[in-house]
């Protein structure tokens, strides 16, 4: 028996190929086009080779933004994933409170991102905001428009408020799908609450946690709207993350070449890190 090669099948995939080409490949190729050329407008281009890439990779501005980005993502992952897991474990499994909890959890996810930024901007204002004014009256020197540290505190708090729900909902879905038999068997085996978590819940949540971490990693690494509305990347450049820096470069300074090069580097970093995360987290399953 031989498998028949049927080239006609390509016709069937053609529409999808066309669609992907228009929404992903062609835009990406224009970016590649910009990244290797120099232009002064009027559609006049000069070949620049890898100059822009070298410039971006060597600039301390890019290094700083990348470092801030990595630090921010690390902090919010370290807070949101354990917190989400704890909240999901504490949520009721049955009864009228289930829907109350689920709706409450889903609320932050339904709010448009710029609104989230605006809300926190006002909430944290040192003179009139509930949080800003409250913290100040408690004796804290809180002014996120002036101090990098309190700006970071506010940005992280906003992201935790906005996105922990996603981890909660994913973990909750995973927890609910664990058959009751497991808990009963553990009870009979005399397992402690910690053992139940360590040997039943955590292993069963591995897949959803992998997805939660990946989603939160990618989203936080590309964070833009909320931070721009909240701090505008400041004070100074202290909350200028990669995407904010990129927009400043491309649309603020109109440095299309370096911006395009930076986009591609940015894209490759996300791709590489996502792949790394995924490979590490699913490594055990292949065995």
């Amino acid at each position: 028996m031989y498998k028949q090669l049927n080239q006609k099948a390509w016709f069937l995939v053609a529409p999808v190929v066309a669609l992907v080409a228009f929404n992903a490949i062609i835009p990406l190729m224009t970016v590649v086009n910009f990244s290797v050329q120099e232009t002064f407008g009027d559609n006049v281009f000069f070949w620049a080779g890898v100059d822009w890439f070298e410039q971006v990779l060597h600039s301390s501005r890019f290094h700083d933004a990348l470092l801030r980005q990595i630090l921010f993502t690390a902090i919010i992952l370290l807070i949101e994933v354990p917190l989400g897991l704890i909240v999901a474990l504490a949520m009721p499994r049955k009864g009228p409170w289930v829907s109350v909890c689920l709706v409450t959890m889903a609320l932050p996810l339904l709010i448009p991102w710029n609104v989230v930024g605006a809300m926190w901007n006002i909430f944290a204002l040192p003179e009139i905001g509930l949080m800003g004014k409250g913290l100040r009256s408690l004796g804290f020197d809180f002014n996120y428009t002036r101090q990098p540290l309190t700006a970071w505190f506010t940005v992280v708090l906003m992201d935790v408020w906005h996105w922990t729900s996603l981890v909660v909902l994913l973990c909750y879905a995973g927890l609910v799908s664990i058959p009751n038999d497991y808990y009963q068997a553990a009870k009979i085996d005399g397992a402690s609450a910690w053992s139940v978590f360590r040997y039943i819940q955590l292993p069963k949540l591995k897949r959803v946690l992998t997805i939660a971490i990946l989603l939160r990693f990618m989203d936080s690494f590309m964070i833009y709207t909320e931070v721009v509305v909240l701090t505008g990347g400041g004070p100074g450049n202290s909350t200028t993350f990669l995407s904010i820096d990129l927009v400043k470069m491309a649309l603020g300074q109109f440095d299309l070449g370096p911006a395009a090069a930076m986009s591609l580097i940015y894209f490759l970093i996300i791709l590489l890190l996502s792949w790394l995360f995924y490979t590490v987290m699913t490594r055990n399953e292949a065995r």
Binding site: P179, Y182, A185, Y199, P203
Partner: peptide, 10 residues
Amino acid sequence: QVFQFPVIYD
């Protein structure tokens, strides 16, 4: 007790 679906610690 042995349940309908095997319970093991993965």
